[in-house]
């Protein structure tokens, strides 16, 4: 394993971007990692631009900045355009309902139709971020333990446990390693 793992998620306010970062960060702490997580957002209100940057390491983390993402969860085209250029050999997870990718890029890009699947399978788009979380968990399965991630998610979101568990599994199943 590399000495630090960098995870970036970005989209609009209200898409659950910060919540996703919080779950990933907490799960990593539970797994014994040192963790930093930054969130930046444009306004107090929903709909603004949001980014969360999570860094995991076995050692104390100095820079909390994501400069070379291992994983990038892109929830909007704007996010993809703004941060896609940082990608070297990481993995992009994107929602094709929201993001149009540049297929000429050399790194791996995995379509995660989170919003459509959330509406189709669970009846509400709000589960899209947990579907994305499941997909991220699968993509990062060599680093982050699936059961711990699921348990952490359920402890952080104590409501609608069945729906969230289903959403997580749907997302997890979308990524094959």
């Amino acid at each position: 394993m590399k000495d630090r793992i960098e995870i970036l998620a970005s989209g609009f306010g209200g898409q659950g971007v910060v919540r996703l970062g919080q779950i990933v960060g907490t799960a990593a702490v539970n797994q014994g990692f040192r963790v930093t997580m930054l969130k930046s957002h444009g306004t107090e209100q929903r709909g603004g631009y949001v980014r969360t940057q999570v860094v995991l390491s076995k050692e104390e983390i100095d820079s909390p900045l994501v400069e070379d993402p291992d994983f990038f969860c892109s929830f909007s085209s704007a996010a993809y355009k703004q941060f896609g250029h940082m990608m070297k050999d990481g993995v992009v997870l994107y929602d094709p309902a929201m993001v149009e990718i540049d297929e000429s890029k050399p790194f791996r890009q995995i379509a995660v139709p989170a919003k459509d699947m959330a509406i189709e399978k669970l009846g509400r788009p709000i589960y899209a971020n947990i579907i994305m979380l499941g997909a991220l968990s699968a993509a990062a399965c060599e680093i982050l333990d699936k059961e711990n991630m699921l348990a952490t998610m359920l402890s952080i979101i104590p409501k609608f446990k069945d729906e969230n568990r289903n959403a997580f599994e749907i997302g997890y199943g979308m990524v094959t390693s």
Partner: peptide
């Protein structure tokens, strides 16, 4: 600053 009060760390 914002990163310290708004961020999460172990």
């Amino acid at each position: 600053d914002q990163l310290i009060t708004d961020g999460f760390e172990d």
